[in-house]
Design a protein around this nucleic acid. Structure first.
Lengths: 218, 218
DNA sequence: CCTACCGATCGGTAGG
DNA sequence: CCTACCGATCGGTAGG
């Protein structure tokens, strides 16, 4: 009789996953606060308490929704680039994969984390802390890849790694903002161009791959 | 007996302004949707209908709040730079002024327009359209200043003006995001550095002012 | 600018 | 997973 998950059956887990898929979509478009239990119940044709029983409180629902969005981000953006060799190539792939996930509108409201971080940046609590930790982890992942690319000799040693990560991250977030606000896909071209130019300036000319086209041999 | 503003007296206008100052602050931190009439009434120690009578509907309240925020932005960010000569110097001043308004936390929840554009990008309607028009106007103002700086010969003619505006705008929005999310003021240093480097790369070396320190004479 | 009210919806509980 | 509730709050109206 656990109030959080009534029966730990496979069926209950499946229902929970279905609820969270809808929750992530609603939250990305209308916000985590406006994600009401009644709204979810209507969309899923369940009773309010049927939804409620899976989470136990509104805050637990919000936390579960953030976790579910994080899993989708990992699966859609991070997983596909893990096969690419670490360093400069993976850095480029991470940014391309991230832009692709925004452009393909994986979530109804654009990048889930851009939406909810703006919503919760002034709302102290566990939800905000989780969002901060997850978005920070992605920034750190970009920084780590820049550090590896430098260690590989692919990037110039005097490049400020924090600045580079800040600027690359900014281009993708700006593309998401401009695309959602003005419904103009040219923002993706601008972001790709900014990323390519910014990285090319940091590339070590001694390493033989300033861009793919110029690579002569393996 | 106009339901929107009951009495067009000076006193009523003053009350309306007082309501909107609180409304802008609440909306920047908690969102324009969560800006409820009851919440405003409590904070201002007025009755709900006392607030309501000034606007006539929730949507009109939201629209008035966006307008009020726009006036504050104009006054805090735009007005101070109008005395600076147009072109490269004003472009730099616009970005510095904008960063300053974010760092000084003019609104409780950081940049009002960053917050509400993320909130309304998936909510079609007049409120969203107004937010889009106002944020677009600021992007265009940056683009216009870049065009003037180019016409002045201060920026290189082969600089892509849309790309430059996109990247500069991105740095400031990223600083707002990082500051609000991680409460880390180093984001402002990163943004200032990114802006200075990006502009310096676009500066025409023929014009004698790549940076203030290197200027030899007037 | 107020009191007094409306139906709808909110998060959450009792009990099954 | 359900029905049947709870008090609080929502946007909005009547009438002054």
């Amino acid at each position: 009789m656990n109030p959080v998950v009534l029966y730990h059956t496979e069926h209950a887990k499946k229902t929970r996953r279905e609820i969270l898929l809808v929750a992530v979509d609603i939250a990305s478009a209308e916000g985590l606060e406006n994600l009401s239990i009644g709204r979810l119940a209507k969309e899923l044709r369940m009773s309010k308490t049927g939804i409620f029983a899976h989470f136990g409180s509104k805050q637990q629902l919000q936390l579960a929704t953030v976790d579910a969005a994080s899993e989708i981000f990992l699966q859609q953006v991070v997983q596909p680039v893990l096969q690419i060799p670490q360093g400069l190539r993976r850095l480029r792939a991470m940014l391309e994969s991230w832009l692709g996930y925004i452009e393909q509108s994986v979530f109804r409201g654009g990048c889930f984390f851009a939406a909810v971080s703006a919503e919760f940046d002034s709302r102290p609590g566990k939800v905000r802390d989780n969002i901060a930790a997850l978005t920070k982890a992605w920034v750190v992942a970009l920084q780590d890849e820049i550090a590896l690319a430098t260690a590989n000799g692919e990037l110039l040693r005097d490049v400020n790694q924090n600045e580079l990560a800040f600027e690359l991250h900014a281009y993708v977030q700006e593309a998401n903002w401009a695309f959602k606000m003005f419904n103009d896909r040219s923002a993706f071209m601008l972001a790709k161009s900014a990323i390519a130019n910014r990285i090319d300036r940091a590339v070590n000319p001694g390493s033989i791959k300033p861009s793919r086209k110029l690579r002569s041999a393996k």
